[in-house]
Design a protein around this nucleic acid. Structure first.
Lengths: 367, 367
DNA sequence: AAAAGCACTCCCAAATCGGGAGTGCTTAAT
DNA sequence: ATTAAGCACTCCCGATTTGGGAGTGCTTTT
């Protein structure tokens, strides 16, 4: 390396420390910082002298007189070259990476991916798609917490991920703490370890009977209680089992409402969290065919004030395979977005002749 | 619609005009603007009165006392509902949309897509991939413009897209304007309509001979001239035929160097233009196996000062199928990025046992 | 040669200021 | 009675000013 000839060991030490500090902090680094935080065994004045020389040699830049130094391009080059010379491909994480690379997509995923891309490209807003996979989710344990005579909380612990979800249920009739305890018992007996496909009319009827015996109430109340509870559980399974993907997030940048970096940040982190949006979107009835429009805070995540979500279920062979949506500022081009989403769902439903579903089933299982 | 009951026709007219103006402009709209630009046949004062009432009814908001009005969520809701009621899925553009939906990806594209996603996810920077398809490009017409005795310009007009590319060539020996004209003739005779696969040693030899006859120079100069010119043409075909895809552009937002909206904008538009980056990256020799690191303006697009591009060709079955890269701030985590890219290229080269290439060839043709 | 001391530079964030756009209300006109 | 005109008032927003602080360069000391 030609750098060896030019720089003293101490200069190299300092230069490397500066590059590393700057990589870490993203700010100009000063002599004092180097003395205290990096382990350079010299005073700030000495470091300053070296820095001045390194600057003269072209390895450092100064944003202005009284700022610290930042590496020049040559400085980075020195750092990278010295890194490369000592560097050999670490193999840790290689397994994870290999796994990520080999993930195969189901046909349905491909269709949804493609549709999302097209939607984003056509409208120039951010598009999203939701893929429900509730079958992969089972609840390990239920807990029903009595809140007051008209409401209770269902706490659900998912199998595997150990993630905990709670759902509040409000009633139009009164219950007692004992009723809640009984409900809890019935849920754990009948629904623990059961996935969404296992919840059928037989199971619900036997739950009704069990609950009625436990609390001694009339059959109607037991039925009501079971039905409303199972509905909440069903929703939760949908939420837990849903995947969401976004496309064209960067398009947000084009709109002045997201020019404010704060708002943009919030929006992006909301999108990246996904949970909030999944929750917002999962509450929509899967059999619902209409295009839904959520304007501003109407029904959505709090942070997404002054943004609109337009959203529609997609059907293939009469079955809902997922949903597609557009997110943008409230003042979006509604007619464009609405017609794009409608056409997309139309075109996708026409794909029914492809034999997508069987092959999708197969591949889903190896996820 | 419940709105029919509450709002007079004039209010509806004004409200709709406000929503549309705001959608168009993205700014609060004032009474004067409505009078002049929208075709409301009333004075600004009258409009102001109506606006005040619309605000009271909850259809409009005011960012502050002396700004214009913006639609409230209810205002948007009114607009959207009235839009939906008059709205029927327009079928124009449906054809285009259908086409976009049915685009199939080749196996190689899938591999690159996947690798790009993984690279971005692992490093948390923006990743890109380049797919060379020079075979799809032919040049319709060449023009050689003599600049001075040591340099000339090749102007190339691509078949189909009609896009025009120019390339400046500098020489180590002297030529005359007549030489340039002769070269131009030879190029058009031999290379017009020829794609990159058609440029072979026979063709070049006959070009050498033709050129020598035309300019009466020694064979060595003719060879040199042809060789250097063809190399430029080759590069241009590569540029024209290259596709580039990005992944994780939004990750840029996390780094303070792009907190400056100006820089972010520039970066994003550079990325979206693609041309600059394709040019930067296409000049790399396709047979080069090393990881390339461009720091700052070292070799890159001007706008991308203080950004680094790390870049490597990907091989499958010994053949370069494309390339993958990472873009981020100069102060990026080099060791992480380098090791990720190396591992990725490693893993991909190990995929050789899949019979990707034949099926890829087939699907490429229907793009 | 390395460290200490000190004046100097220059950014940056907070505070200040003035112009301008738009409103609300009162009054005049049709 | 509805519409338009006139005018004072509000409040944002960009430009300008200002003071503190971090960091340097240079001189002096050890």
């Amino acid at each position: 390396m030609s750098f060896d000839d030019v720089l003293s060991d101490r200069k190299k030490l300092i230069l490397r420390a500066i590059v590393e500090a700057h990589i870490k902090l993203g700010e100009p680094v000063g002599s004092k910082y180097l003395m205290q935080e990096a382990n350079i065994g010299y005073s700030s004045a000495t470091i300053r002298n070296e820095m001045a020389e390194l600057e003269e040699l072209g390895y450092l830049d100064k944003p202005h007189t009284s700022a610290g130094r930042i590496p020049s391009e040559l400085g980075y080059r020195f750092y990278v070259d010295s890194l490369v010379s000592q560097y050999d491909s670490k193999t840790k994480e290689a397994g994870e990476l290999k796994k990520m690379l080999s993930v195969k997509m189901s046909e349905i995923d491909k269709i949804l991916d493609n549709a999302t891309k097209v939607a984003s490209a056509m409208t120039n807003y951010t598009a999203l798609s939701l893929r429900p996979r509730p079958s992969s989710i089972t609840i390990k344990k239920y807990e029903v917490v009595y809140l007051d005579s008209l409401s209770y909380l269902i706490i659900m612990i998912a199998q595997g991920t150990e993630s905990v979800k709670t759902k509040k249920v409000s009633l139009s009739f009164e219950i007692t703490p004992e009723d809640a305890a009984a409900l809890s018992k019935v849920l754990n007996i009948n629904l623990a370890g059961v996935n969404v496909d296992g919840i059928n009319i037989h199971l619900m009827m036997s739950m009704n009977t069990q609950l009625k015996e436990l609390i001694g109430s009339d059959m109607h109340m037991a039925e009501e209680l079971v039905s409303i509870t199972v509905k909440s559980i069903y929703e939760t399974m949908n939420e837990l089992g849903s995947e969401i993907k976004f496309e064209g997030v960067n398009r947000l940048l084009e709109y002045p409402e997201y020019k404010n970096l704060d708002k943009l940040q919030k929006m992006i982190s909301t999108i990246e969290n996904k949970e909030d949006i999944i929750r917002a979107v999962s509450t929509i009835d899967q059999s619902d065919d209409d295009t839904k429009i959520f304007i501003g805070s109407e029904n959505m995540v709090k942070i997404m004030d002054d943004s609109t979500l337009i959203y529609k279920n997609l059907k293939l062979n009469g079955k809902t395979i997922g949903a597609i949506g557009i997110i943008g500022p409230c003042r979006m081009d509604y007619s464009k977005v609405l017609s794009t989403i409608d056409q997309l769902s139309e075109e996708i439903s026409k794909l029914s002749d492809i034999n997508a579903l069987p092959s999708a089933k197969n591949e889903e299982s190896d996820l």
